[in-house]
């Protein structure tokens, strides 16, 4: 008898579901809301003076478990904006095809110079297209929405709770522009 009851129950359940509102979010048209720390790709944002924030300290290159980051330091120069001496990078390459999205590179960055963005890269026809070079990473910083995590925030989060210590707050342009609406294309 249990069989008959269960059968009737199953038939009832499916029929009830058939008249409910479908939960499908029609992907290319509708973008599903994502968690605050959702992240998919990378960007190299500018610092507060409008220069590239990365100083080529190699911290991210060293910590990356997949070893996908390669950079070439440009040495110290006088900044054309502030006039002070600071370090620059000549090249920065991130191979997204082997990235695991662990965000360690963001976490170790003391100058908040690398962040992850919420919009994924477009699926590529060739493996090389997934290698993000400096140009693409800079473009990402302008076009895409930064994820929650920055070096400062992540490091703060990891520190043991000390009430008296003030947070080392650094203004990050990437996070200030975070609530900006995402471009409709390539958005998830």
């Amino acid at each position: 008898m249990g069989y008959f009851n269960d059968t009737a129950k199953a038939l009832r359940t499916t029929m009830v579901n058939a008249f409910r509102e479908p939960v499908t979010q029609e992907f290319p048209l509708v973008i599903r809301p994502r968690a605050e720390r959702f992240r998919a790709s990378f960007a190299l944002p500018d610092d507060e003076h409008g220069e590239v924030a990365c100083i080529g300290c190699l911290a991210c290159e060293r910590i990356c478990p997949s070893r996908v980051i390669k950079m070439k330091s440009g040495g110290k120069k006088d900044s054309p904006v502030t006039g002070k001496k600071r370090a620059y990078i000549d090249e920065f390459v991130l191979d997204l095809s082997a990235c695991i999205g662990c965000e360690l590179c963001v976490q170790v960055c003391n100058s908040d110079a690398i962040v992850m963005v919420r919009q994924p890269e477009v699926p590529a026809f060739a493996r090389e297209d997934l290698v993000l070079d400096m140009e693409k990473l800079r473009a990402n910083a302008k076009l895409k929405t930064a994820s929650w995590g920055t070096g400062t925030r992540l490091q703060e989060m990891q520190e043991p709770p000390k009430a008296e210590k003030p947070a080392v707050a650094k203004a990050s342009p990437a996070t200030e522009t975070a609530p900006a609406p995402a471009p409709a294309k390539e958005t998830v």
Binding site: T14, M15, N17, A18, F19, R20, E21, P22, V23, T24, E26
Partner: peptide, 12 residues
């Protein structure tokens, strides 16, 4: 029909 039973849309 199968889609609606699983609260999907089916072919659209």
């Amino acid at each position: 029909f199968a889609g609606r039973m699983q609260q999907r849309l089916g072919p659209t």
